[in-house]
Design a protein around this nucleic acid. Structure first.
Lengths: 211, 211
DNA sequence: TGTACATCAGTGAACGCGCGTTCACTGATGTAC
DNA sequence: TGTACATCAGTGAACGCGCGTTCACTGATGTAC
């Protein structure tokens, strides 16, 4: 079960390539129109394939949507994993997190845009899948946060709530980065500064709260 | 130019009623499907009118969407005006705000849901109109906040930023209330408590920040 | 290696359907005298 | 008040179009011998 193109029988490899083309086509088109507004035929056209070929890969547009949710959260988790390895995290976790967030979103606008758009605007099935993944993600982030020096003494309820706030702000900031016109370094810096402030606020507020 | 049904010529009054029926139909249908997914014919059907009659009132679905944006922000502004008159505001502004927010959203799920959904998922025209209204709203709220005892000494930049955070959290909390199943008083209380905490956090954090 | 058959990803024609928009219309409401 | 005409909100038929889905198909890839 190789991940991509390693020594599969030619037929399976080609099928895999078409599947990727369909996913990429849908992701690309959904950036301007929103996934929920896409038609099966539009996606097939963009993927360079006849509409009926779509059914060899997905039962319906909803199923394709779920595959994109999965893809998007893989991207998101990779971002967190990379961030944890970044040595700057040990110097100043908040500055590093703001930096990583903005950079990762910039480089994966399609996936982050997909999540933030379809989280509220998508079909019921897709919307629910995203909410579920985000809930999971809040819990996963809570585990990471719980190990941090400033936070390790907090109650697990408080950590969960901070995690929820962080994720909520992450989503909001990702929305802003996605909407950001290209080449506006000033806007980018403002968003980063905003993200830093918000995180500091949350941590400061909670410390004082507890004391 | 009476607002509703007061002594207009019968024909105009009837036209106004049909217009309201179209707006109500679109708002209702958009709760399950999202406004961007609605067709003109669906809206006309739900409004009890033939598709061509739609054009007597709106040039296109986009124009109807803009009318709904306008309606929704009238609702939002009414909420803020009522909240300012509420005597509890002088006792504990944060608790009062959380209470008013949840109650107002509960009673206007359709409008708040419309804004939170179409803010990211709508057509470009509608999306931009909502962003513009929200920006205006941040500035308006900043004026209100600037007069509050705890805040009156802050710089206007800081007030603007706090206003932005409040509005962002308001939108997030409104989303949660809209998604809340009916009759779950426990969930409602949790959302309220969350909103109170977030507002306290923001204010506490900012106070400490400035000191 | 070569042959005969099986598999199956992608094709292309066809279908019925709801869509947005046009057009000429109808008949109740409004206006002038 | 009554009549003759104007206005115009809503009607209903018609159009061409893109849609999702079905079906029988093709031809390259895979397998058995």
């Amino acid at each position: 079960m190789g991940t991509s193109g390693d020594s599969l029988p030619a037929r399976q490899a080609q099928k895999e390539r078409t599947r990727e083309a369909i996913l990429a086509a849908a992701l690309e088109l959904s950036q301007s129109q929103g996934f929920a507004q896409l038609s099966l035929r539009q996606v097939a056209r963009q993927a360079g394939v006849v509409p009926t070929a779509f059914y060899r890969h997905f039962e319906s547009m909803d199923e394709l949507g779920l595959a994109l949710v999965e893809q998007s959260f893989l991207t998101l988790r990779r971002m967190i994993r990379d961030a944890q390895r970044d040595p700057n995290v040990f110097v100043n976790i908040i500055d590093a997190a703001a930096e990583v967030l903005v950079e990762a979103v910039k480089q994966n606008k399609a996936h982050f845009g997909f999540v933030s758009r379809e989280r509220v605007g998508g079909s019921p099935v897709v919307r629910q899948a995203i909410r579920h993944e985000l809930d999971l993600f809040v819990s996963e982030l809570a585990v990471v946060l719980a190990r941090l020096p400033n936070i390790e003494t907090w109650s697990s309820d408080d950590v969960q709530m901070v995690s929820r706030l962080f994720v909520r702000n992450m989503v909001s900031n990702a929305e802003e980065v996605v909407e950001m016109p290209d080449g506006r370094a000033d806007l980018e810096e403002r968003i980063k500064e905003g993200a830093r402030r918000q995180m500091r606020l949350i941590v400061l507020g909670f410390e004082r709260w507890e004391s």
